[in-house]
Design a protein around this nucleic acid. Sequence first.
DNA 1: GGAATAGTGTCTATTAGACACTATTTG
DNA 2: CAAATAGTGTCTAATAGACACTATTCC
Lengths: 238, 238
Amino acid sequence: MNAEQWQPPPVLLAVDLLILTLRDSRLQALLVERGVDPFIGRMALPGGFLRDAGEGLGAAAERELREEAGLDAGALHLEQLGVYGEPDRDPRGRVVSVAYLAITPRLPDPIAGSDAAEARWCSVDEIARGDIPLAFDHADILADGVDRARSKIESTALATAFCGDEFTIPELQQVYEAVWGAPVDPRNFYRKVKAAAGLLAPADTSPRKPETGRPARLYRAGPATVIHPPILRSVALA
Amino acid sequence: MNAEQWQPPPVLLAVDLLILTLRDSRLQALLVERGVDPFIGRMALPGGFLRDAGEGLGAAAERELREEAGLDAGALHLEQLGVYGEPDRDPRGRVVSVAYLAITPRLPDPIAGSDAAEARWCSVDEIARGDIPLAFDHADILADGVDRARSKIESTALATAFCGDEFTIPELQQVYEAVWGAPVDPRNFYRKVKAAAGLLAPADTSPRKPETGRPARLYRAGPATVIHPPILRSVALA
DNA sequence: GGAATAGTGTCTATTAGACACTATTTG
DNA sequence: CAAATAGTGTCTAATAGACACTATTCC
C-alpha cells in the first residue's frame, strides 16, 4: 500500500467439492484417487483449478461437478462452504481453494463421465474416524461441510435435496437419521414435518408399492427454503 | 486438465472486512472512503490485497484490521464470511475477495492509525436501505454478514463480543435488540441468558454506578461458545 | 417519598418428547 | 389371520411469552 510500483502477489484458485449423498442409510461423500503428484495415490475431494480468468466461482464448481462426477448442477443443491487458503496447504505453491457443498439424491452406482482415475463413495464416518486419510486439508473441509449439513437441516429444507423428486416421509426421516447419526421417533417426526410450513407438497403420483407393509404417501419438496417451526435434534450437540 | 502445458490462471486475492459494532444503540459498520480509482470517492468496506504469497488469509485479515481500523485482532471476534469472486466484480481484472466478519465493542470515536482517507461508522440500516451506496459488491457482503450475526447470536455467545470485558445484562439485551432490530422483553431476556449454560460468568468488580436507578450486576463472557438452550427471536424471520 | 432502572416470580398457552393405538398393505 | 410398515392420537412435563411485583439506587 506504500510503494508506488508494488503489485499484489497472484495466487492459484482451486475449487473443491464436498458431494454428499445417502447410500445404505449412511451419509457418504464422493472421493477421487489422486493421479498426480502432490499426495499421489491418496483420496481427495473432487476439484480442480479455475479454467480461465473469466470463469465464475460458481460456474467452476458446476463444471467440476459435471467433469468429475457426471452430475448436473441444475438438479442439485450447491452452496459455498468457505475458503481454505493457509500458505502451506499445497506443496506446489500458493493455492487457495474455494470449497462447495453439494447435496444429491441416491444415484446409480457407477459415476458416469468421471475424469478422475477412480471415484468412489465413502462413508463420512469412516473418513472422520481417519480410516481413509485425505489429501491436503480436505478432512477439514469434510468436517466443516458435514457440520453445516447437520445444522442446516434443522431450519431449512436442505434434507429434501437428499431425496429424489418424490419421496415419502419415512425416507425423509432416514435422511435426518443418517445426517445426524441418531435415531428419530417416527411419530414425532411426522408431526414435525407436517407442522413445518411449506416443507412438503403432496405429489400427484400414486404411492409406490413396497414388498411388505402399507405403502407410504408421496410428497415433493414444498416452496419453503427456511422452515418454521424448525425440526430440532433432541439431543444436544457434542 | 487435458493440454500438457496448460497453466491455471492466476488471480488477485483481496481481503475485505465487515467490522460491526454497537453505537448509539444501533448496529454500525466501519466504512472507508475510496481514494483510488475504481469507485473513487465511494464508501467501501476496509480491505486490501494479500501482501505477499506467504501471508495466510486470516493473517491478512488481522493485518488489514490493524492497518485500516487500528484494531487488535487478538481482542475481538473474527470469522470468515465467504468468498466473493464473480468475474466482473472488479473492473481492474480478476479479483477474488475473501470477506471476514469482525465484531468489536464500542470504541472511542476517532479510529486510530487508519490508513484510509476517511473511515467512519455508518448505520447498517442506512446502508441496507441504499442511502449510502457501496463500492464493488460490498453491499452484498454487508447483507450476508448482518444475516450471519443475526442468526448466530441465537445459538452462540457472539453477542458478548459486542460488549466490553465486563458488561451488564441490560447492555447485552441492547446488543440483541440492535442486531435483531426488534425489542426484547427484559424479564424474559433475563431468564433466558441465565438459563444459557456457560454464557455468563460473574465479574469480580463491583457494579458501576449509573446516574439514576439501581446499578446492574457485572458479568463477563463465560466459557461457552455455543449456548444451550438458545436465545431465540420471538418473531419469525422476514 | 418519587423516579428510574434492576431483578424475581407467576400464570397460561403452547410445545416437545414418550408412547399406545389404528390403518393399510402383502402373503 | 399374521407380519410389516404408515399414520394418528393422547398424555405429561417443560417451555415461551405476557406481565405483576419487589429491590436498590439517587434525588
